[in-house]
Structures are given as C-alpha cells and as structure tokens.
Design a protein around this nucleic acid. Structure first.
Lengths: 149, 149
DNA sequence: CCGATAATCTATAAAGTCTATAGATTATCT
DNA sequence: AGATAATCTATAGACTTTATAGATTATCGG
C-alpha cells in the first residue's frame, strides 16, 4: 500500500501544477485546505520535496511553494521512491533499493523472486508512464465524459 | 512492500507443496529450519493459513501441517490478500478491500485513483497468474538453465 | 526599519503495525 | 502413561505512520 505521505505528496503536486499556470507560489494553507491534507504533515512533505529539487519555496508575504520541474517531467515513480522507497514488493526484486534476503541461499534460483520481478516490471510500466501532467489530463477526461452523460 | 508475514507464508506453502508428494504432514520445526523462518512467528502464520482452509493440521507424533488445497489452486492473490490485505495501492482502487477516501470529493473524477486502478489491474494480472505450483516450476526452470551454463 | 506573514527547523508523541518471544494447554500416537 | 507436536493466550520491542507544538528565520509592504 501507498503511505498517506506519498498520496498527499502526489495530491499536493497536482494542486501545485494546476495553480502554477499563474507562476506564483502557493501557500501551504491553501494546498492544505483545498486538498484536505493536515497542515503540519503537509509541511514536512513539501519540505522533503523541496530538498529533492522538485519544489522551490519563497518565504514571507506572497511566499509559498512552487514547482521547479515541469508537471510533464514529474513521474509517479520518482515521488513514490522518494517518499515510500522501493516499488518492488520484496527488496531482492528491487532495482533502486536492492537488498539480499538473509533467508535465501541462492536468489538466482528463487521462484518467488522471479514472480516479484515480473510484478515489479509491470508496476514500473504503469508508474513510469504517468506524470503529474498525466494525472491532470485523466482528471479532465473523466470530468468531460461524466458531463456528457 | 510485502510484509515478512506474507513472504514467509508463501515460502512455507512452497516447502509444504514440495514435501507433500509424500502426503504426510510436515512439522513446524522442519519448515522453520529449512526455510530459515523464526519458529514462533511461523507458528502464527500457519495457524492463520489453517483457519482460512488452505492448510490442515494434525497433533501428536507424526503430526504437522499439510496442504488441503492443491498447489495449482493456491494463487498468490489469495495468500497476499489473506496476510497483507489489499493488492491495490490505495483503498479506493481496491476490489476486495474498497474504502472511500475521506479527503476526496468525487472519486469517479480522481486522476490518481484512475492510475492506481490501472496499476491494480496490472498487478492482479501477474499475481493471479501465479500459483504455488508455478513458483516451484519457475524454480526448477531456473535451476536447469543455470546448470546448462 | 518595523511588523506582519509565511516558510523552516527541532523536538516530541500517540497510534498502529511488524516481528517476534514465552509459557501454558490440548490433542494424538505408541 | 508418556512423549510429541500443534494450539492458544498474553506480551513486548522496534519501527513506521501520522501527526502536533513551539521557536526561528526570511521576506515584503509601508
């Protein structure tokens, strides 16, 4: 399961992407209220995203957070790996967070690892195909098809 | 990520499937030592699997656990749902463990949910295509291709 | 340069989950 | 009856999640 942290991070980035057509920073409180994310928790999340170069911030009046990268270039893989860690379901099947199982004699011959590697490949295909911009696109698409009814 | 509980459950079932050609029950200690799973933890896991009708048990001398279902009919989806819960990454995208997001106004219009539903479909495709028997098959296949080198 | 605003940093903590461990009890077989 | 092995109950340390409180620092308008 995705942690709330990851989910909130994605939602905040979507909110920022929608807002940043204006180019100006968005306040934590605004994001918090709009997306119903606990303010102080969101604070920590945004700080994290800033430290990793996805967001920038400005203090004082008219301050807030803004996107550094374009919504088209922020993929779900990046956010999830940053906030939750590995995409794979077991460490020995992970690309970026590989770890050896201490209960496994020879992983090159492990059937479970083989299946979990297949799963990781499938998951990565979906997550690396979707950026923040794609999420917004899907949203407008869903709204349109709903209104047509 | 998969919990250790799930991982141990799958490994134990694989061990039992390999053993149960003989049809006779396998002792907790044997599984524990063979698969390097902490004994008492394994105990709780096997009890769970028994309560859900996947395993049977027999007390006393020559006792132990045995498979009730055939290895071909025990799929990873079943085990993971039983020990870890949902396959989906967020509850609102789950088939068996659906829950509404309390921060979401209208989920039918949520872009993140849409992506996570795609991911769930992809994950389910892999996990429901693999049974305990399949894991064993993959293992022998891996061993064979290794020996041919 | 002052005062208001808003991000930043540090510390802490409640709740829940994961990963077990210990010990007593009950059923089975010889 | 006695040995074996599963079963049940209770508990607990470590870690993660999900925050909350409060002090500090930077920015801007006037």
């Amino acid at each position: 399961m995705l942690s709330k942290k990851s989910k909130y991070a994605i939602k905040a980035l979507v909110a920022l992407a929608k807002h940043s057509k204006h180019g100006e920073p968005m306040r934590i409180v605004e994001i918090s209220e709009q997306e119903k994310i606990p303010k102080k928790f969101l604070e920590a999340i945004l700080l994290d995203l800033r430290k990793h170069g996805i967001l920038g911030s400005k203090m004082g009046i008219n301050g807030g957070y803004y996107l550094v990268k374009k919504p088209e270039q922020i993929f779900l893989t990046e956010i999830i790996r940053l906030t939750d860690g590995p995409i794979a379901m077991i460490p020995c099947a992970s690309l970026n967070f590989y770890e050896k199982c201490d209960d496994c004699e020879d992983e090159t011959v492990c059937g479970l690892r083989k299946v979990m590697t297949e799963l990781r490949t499938a998951s990565l295909a979906v997550l690396s195909a979707n950026s923040i911009a794609d999420i917004i696109k899907k949203e407008t698409k869903l709204i349109n098809s709903k209104n047509r009814k």
